[in-house]
Write a protein that binds this DNA or RNA. Structure first.
Lengths: 220, 220
DNA sequence: CCGGACCTTACGGTTTCCCGTAAGGAAGGC
DNA sequence: GCCTTCCTTACGGGAAACCGTAAGGTCCGG
């Protein structure tokens, strides 16, 4: 079982629960409310010759008056992996979009994910348990979602276009913008084609629908 | 101070923190994970002659295999007010859109709101304290948002139009729809005029911006 | 009853968007 | 090298949205 765990979570109430859960498992834990503090603690622990075994972190940290270098969970994970490549990572967040969670496992190499949901405290215990045995903890709903996933996979390009539209840029002005920012493709037809593809797969007929959908899904 | 409090919160971890917070205040508390259970408890407590003083509830409850009558916090609040009009209500949720929170105070008559955020546990204690003195607990960020509110006042008509657009209806098809539903005015020009007014006051140029804005504000 | 203020609606010209077709270009197999 | 395939881009006709103007209605006060 893990010897010492670091908790990075800005919501006080969630932080409290994490501590309580770890206490009940008899695991030594430290907690912080800011990403930057988490990284300092990790550095310090290595320096002291007693590095952490596991980092439990949220994904989204709210900005406040304290200026931060790391702007969220992903940045923290990347930085932590840099100073301590072997550190195991468990993400605890309300994020539910399969694409985002998959990306964490694939690109960031996290070892587990627990979604803030109905039985999250119980699931946390299981996750910590199995992760201490070297396993990955992948949420069940993700395995299911990966199967019957008939929704559109939004690429960065898609998100860019829809964001621009939602900010008031005219479709015909987008090519110029894309060229200036070295984004390819940049042709007006490509934009139209992409918008059509998105509307087609989601059976929408207007851009307004796309914007509404993306807002609802947290894509933009 | 409150004698007995009911907690309705589906996320186990949040539920645990709420209990802990109330315990620290020395307040008797009961907890449930489902809206329907909350309503039964309230009914039962009245029947037993020991009604609750306060209901702390989340807004959004996730559906699972258990079929529920009440589909979320707002439904629970409405039902609870019906069986026990004097029951005080504190909403504890991650919802941050001013329009939604204002609506809860205005239409549902809730007595307090605490947002799941950085110092939420501390704020909960303050909220429970001041609500037991009969005060309302309105989050600070909401007061600010309500003040420098130079934005457009959305009428029902505005909301209807934008909703239709966000559902994919063509502008030119809206007049027919409005006539069928006896909504006046219904002329295409009136719709254009109204859209222009909204875009003008918000300095927007495209409908997509309006849709995005209304989604962010919780207007649609 | 009349006239004015205001709102609603109708109409036409211009711009933008939509959509199908076809030409141009890059990557990969034979 | 050449061909196929796939992606990107350009173009043009038609539909929708945009915008200004003017006509028609309604509600009031005089």
């Amino acid at each position: 079982m893990f010897k010492s765990v670091l908790i990075a979570e800005d919501h006080e109430s969630a932080n409290i629960s994490l501590r309580k859960t770890l206490d009940e498992l008899g695991i030594n834990n430290t907690y912080v409310y800011y990403c930057d503090d988490a990284l300092s603690r990790i550095r310090r622990a290595i320096f002291d010759g007693a590095p952490y075994d596991l980092l439990i972190t949220d994904l989204y940290f709210e900005a406040d008056e304290r200026q931060q270098q790391l702007d969220g969970g992903e940045a923290l994970i990347a930085a932590a992996k840099e100073v301590q490549p072997g550190l195991k990572i468990l993400v605890f967040s309300a994020e539910h979009r399969p694409a985002v969670i998959e990306g964490l496992f694939r690109d960031q190499g996290i070892n587990g994910y627990v979604r803030k949901a109905r039985r999250d405290a119980q699931e946390l215990k299981q996750a910590v348990q199995s992760m201490s045995d070297g396993k990955l903890h992948i949420p069940v709903h993700l395995r299911q979602a990966m199967k019957h996933n008939n929704a559109h996979e939004f690429t960065d390009f898609d998100v860019t276009i829809i964001t621009l539209l939602s900010e008031g840029m005219r479709q015909k002005d987008i090519p110029a913008f894309l060229q200036q920012n070295q984004i390819r493709p940049s042709g007006l037809s490509s934009i139209e084609k992409r918008l059509n593809l998105m509307k087609d797969t989601l059976s929408f007929s207007k851009n307004e629908q796309l914007v509404a959908y993306c807002k609802d899904m947290g894509i933009i």
